[in-house]
Structure formats: C-alpha cells, structure tokens
Design a binder for these strands. Structure first.
Lengths: 117, 117
DNA sequence: GAAATCCACTACCATATGGTTGTGGATAGG
DNA sequence: CCTATCCACAACCATATGGTAGTGGATTTC
C-alpha cells in the first residue's frame, strides 16, 4: 500500500468545507477566489484545502493569467460510488432480513390482536 | 456543523485497515480477535480502529461473554453510496462530453487516413 | 509606472491519528 | 482455584491536519 489512493480520496472528502467545494465545482469550474467567497475562511486556508483535493486527484488546477482555475474530476467521485456500490448486495440483503423481521412482528401483532380481541 | 456525521464516516473509511475490516464484516459479524488475525497489527491497535468505526456508526459492538462481536451497519455504507450518487448526473454529463471529443478525434483520424492513404 | 488583485509560500500552534508498550479486568476451561 | 484467552484502558511518540498571521510574486488595471 505505497500510495493508498482511495484512502487519500476519503480523507480529502472527510472535511465539510472540501465537500462543499466539490458540490460547488460539480456545477462548473471556479477560481480559488471564487471558492473562497462562500466560506468564512482565509485565502491561505482555502488554498490548503484545494491542495488536498488536488493531491487526492479530485480536483485539477490550471493557471490562467493570475488566476488558478479549479476543475472537478468526475472519475474521482465515481470511484467513491463504485466502492460503496460494491457492497450494495450486502445492504440489500440486510434490508431484506429486516423485512422478514418486520413481517414476523406484524404476524405477532395479529396474534396479539386475536388474543386481546 | 456540531457533528459532521458524513465527515466522520469518510474519515473512518480513509484507512486501508478499516476498509479491509468493513470488507470482512460485510461477510458476517466477527469478534475483535477475529478481526485481529488477518492483520499484522497489535490487538490494541485493532481495538482502536474498531473504535473509530463505532464512533462513525459504521460498526456496532455487542458483548457476548468475554468476546466483543462487531457487526457492520448497512445504512452507513449506503450513506456513502447516496452521497456519491448525488453527483451521478455530473460525471455522466462529463463522460458524454468526453464521447463528443473522442468522436471528433475519430473523424480527424479518418481525415488523416484519407490524406496519408 | 503604481496600485490593486489573485495566489503561493513559510512559520507557527493545537489537536487528532497511527502506532507502540505495559497493564489489568472478565470470562472460559482445566 | 488457576491459568489462558479476549479485550479495554492509559501513557507515550511521531506525523498529518485545521487553522492563524505574515510576506512576496505575478498579473491586471488605472
């Protein structure tokens, strides 16, 4: 595990500010300044957060004049989706079992009704 | 942002050992000892990792005699899936755009073939 | 050319985390 | 009862991270 890419991705997404940045960038590229405005954080801190997103390959930064334009990489988000969906069978099975339990409880209710009715 | 639940979840999943634990637990509950065996880590460290998963509500721990049984919470994984899937439109649009570019490149190739052939 | 804007780099601090070692409490089995 | 097993708790260390403040380099704009 020389470089734990998925781990870096999850770590980058563990901060609410960075997830808000992802949300913003999903609606189109933005400059560092543009990403600073919505938050009550210093420009330095925003740059630091962006650096984490870049390191996790979630965001790409390109210079345009004196501005740095940030673009979201769709594959990065899809990677997270793919990871979670690989457990889809697990949670669907669990919910099915829950259904069984709920149905069992409903039967018990009916029996209770019969007893008390 | 008193408690950033999704953030805690992502943070818990940012470690490869903990993701391996999730993978193991997706195939059924296990004791702390059972979770220790596959890894070259001390029992104390495993307990610490489990504690992070418990705090993130990804895992539930119940005592059974002298053992602690760990169970994976399906909803926790589904939460991650839901988050990522909320950007599905974004990455699918991006891939569509990529298709346009690729098709454009194919056309250019055809033109090149005509020129060089 | 001078000033303002956009941004990066550095130093610094507090806290969380990955990891170790040591220890002690329960429970299970002889 | 005695011992081995399963596990939690505490102290300790190094590093990464969220955050601050200060500074300086480019690029626009006047």
């Amino acid at each position: 595990m020389v470089v734990d890419r998925l781990g870096t991705t999850f770590a980058a997404l563990s901060d609410p500010t960075r997830r808000a940045m992802v949300e913003r960038l999903s609606r189109g590229p933005a400059s560092v300044h543009g990403l600073t405005e919505p938050f009550a954080l210093s420009q330095q801190m925003i740059s630091k957060h962006i650096a984490y997103l870049v390191r996790a390959r979630i965001v790409i930064k390109t210079k345009r004049g004196r501005e740095s334009i940030c673009t979201l990489r769709p594959e990065a988000i899809k990677t997270v989706s793919d990871w979670a969906l690989s457990y889809r069978r697990f949670w669907e099975e669990s919910f099915d079992k829950l259904d069984v339990v709920v149905n069992q409880m409903k039967k018990e209710e009916v029996r209770d009704d019969r007893k008390s009715g």
